[in-house]
Structures are given as C-alpha cells and as structure tokens.
Amino acid sequence: MRRTAMITAALAMAVSGGLAMAPSATAATACPSGAVCIRETNGSILSKNIFYSYGAHNLSNVTGYRVIVNNQTGGAGFQVCRGYNGGGDCSGVVRGTGEYTPYNMTPINSVVLVR
C-alpha cells in the first residue's frame, strides 16, 4: 500500500506540474492518436512501446527515466504497475493527456490502459 501511494504521488506531481519538458519537437517522435506511448531517451518511440488496447501491457527493457505520453481520447487513462500483467503495486489512474515528467521506469513492469 505504501509503494502504491508513492507511485501515485510521483505521477500526481508530474500531472500537477503540467506538461513535461520533453525532447525538442524536431527530435521527438509523435505518439499516435488513441495511444499511450513510452519515449526512448533519445525522443523516439519504439513500436513495442505504443499501446492502443485497454488492459495490461508488459514491458521489456524499459529502464531509466522515460517520458510517458497519454494521447488517448474520450478521457481514457493509464496506470503503471511494478508487476507483470498489471499486478503488484500500481499507481492511481492518470487521465490527463499529453507528456508527463520523466519517470523512473526501472521498477515498472507493465502499463495498464483503462477506460
């Protein structure tokens, strides 16, 4: 429960700070409409880190500080979880669209898209 509160607090701080400072517009790859994306440290987005469908998506080799982009429509949100398949400690659901402050993804093993 304590870890969940820390994850939620970290994401809430990112949300309250508004849009994050991301790589410059010329260097950053756009996240497609309707998706949640995780940027590489160089600003690109790998196809394996673009998520469209609701539910849990396991991560592979996503470590360090990364920018998460919520480009879903209709108020859909996401949460990050320490366990695979959306298990373990998870953050609260984040629904704001845009880019979030870089977040330490090393302990994160899945992203869950929610309606």
Rank of each mutant, 00 (worst) to 15 (best):
H57N: 09
N49C: 09
N109P: 03
V80H: 02
K48W: 12
N71A: 04
N58V: 07
M105K: 09
G92V: 07
R95Q: 10
S91P: 03
G75P: 12
M6R: 14
T26Q: 13
P102L: 07
G87H: 06
I108Q: 02
I68G: 05
M6I: 12
M13P: 00
R82F: 01
S24K: 15
A5Y: 14
A12G: 05
A22L: 10
G43T: 11
S91R: 06
G74E: 02
C31V: 05
S24C: 05
T4L: 14
A20D: 09
G87V: 04
C37S: 05
F51S: 00
A27C: 10
T8C: 10
L59H: 00
A5E: 11
S53A: 15
V15N: 03
V93H: 04
S110D: 05
T106I: 13
P107N: 15
F51T: 01
T29A: 15
A30V: 11
A12V: 00
M105G: 06
N42Y: 06
E40C: 06
L11D: 08
G17K: 01
G88T: 03
F78S: 01
G96S: 13
G43H: 08
A20V: 05
P107H: 02
S60N: 08
A25I: 13
Y52H: 07
L113D: 03
S91Q: 05
N42L: 00
M1S: 02
L59D: 07
Y52I: 08
S47P: 05
G98M: 13
T106M: 12
R2G: 14
Q79D: 04
G83C: 01
N58E: 09
I7D: 03
V80D: 03
T101Y: 09
G17S: 10
P107W: 07
V67L: 08
S16W: 04
G92N: 09
G75D: 10
G55N: 01
M13A: 15
D89W: 00
I108W: 02
L113N: 10
S16T: 10
C31W: 04
Y65T: 10
F78E: 09
G88D: 01
N104L: 12
T29D: 08
F78A: 07
S33G: 06
R39I: 01
R66S: 03
G74D: 10
V112I: 09
M105L: 07
T101Q: 14
V15K: 12
Y100I: 05
I68V: 14
I7G: 02
N58Q: 08
G98S: 11
V93W: 01
N58G: 08
N49E: 12
Y100G: 06
K48N: 11
L59P: 03
E40G: 11
V114F: 08
T41A: 14
T26E: 12
T63C: 04
N104Y: 08
